[in-house]
Amino acid sequence: MRILVLMKMAPDVVEELEIAPGGTALDLDYVRMILSESDDHALEQALLLKERHGATVTALALDAPEVDDALFTALAKGADRAVKIAGLDAGFPTSQAARAMSQAIAQVPGLSPADLILTGVQAIDDLDGLIAPMVAHALDLPYLGIVTRLSLDASGRTALATKEYPGGVRGEFEVKLPAVLGIQAAEKPPRYVPVAKVRAAMKTQKIDSAPASLPADGGCAAAQVVEMKRNEPAGHAEMLDGDPESVSDKLCGILTGHGLL
């Protein structure tokens, strides 16, 4: 069984985000990148499957600041191979990321055929779509998202995936492999790997590098950001004054506005 984990770095929103002078993008000099949270879960799920069924896990990521850290961490956690796709312009949109990954899967030796391609269900910067369905479309593979539990049948040809629905309901799906799954949460929170192990991985293992090769045409039409601004953090609540009745009415209005009533 061969599992591929697609990983993407996304801006770390713990840090302050700054808008670049043009006003249509983040100032990338300011941003710190971090592995997209659900990609971390995808990696964890892959490692859990490896422990349960025996598999090789390859982490595939697009070059970005701090991506080496993320890949060495993946190796330290138990991934067998790490591949980095280099050469995309900073701030690439998700559709381009997906195309570069699909190309790499087809072209980089040893990546295909993969039995299972896992990635995070969605990243906070997936403005023009999600990676998993894009890769599934490009490689003509089955797709399912919001997966929170995953097991393989004895033959290794079918996966049983649990998808989360509203109100705590879960759907159990049979997915023919190979397939691309968008992981929302691994069965266990992503493991912590001690710094010493990451350091050891840096010394003894390496990251394979592959150039990005994109088809000449843009693929699908792009979405253009015309303006970007910071959603100012509230800092302080908007206070509702008045007697209990009028305050309650105001609040009801607000809740209705948020679709909560």
């Binding site: 001690p194 710094v195 010493a196 192990k197 990451v198 350091r199």
Partner: peptide
């Protein structure tokens, strides 16, 4: 018990 992180 996280000696490596301490060193960092």
């Amino acid at each position: 018990g996280e000696e490596g992180l301490y060193e960092t």
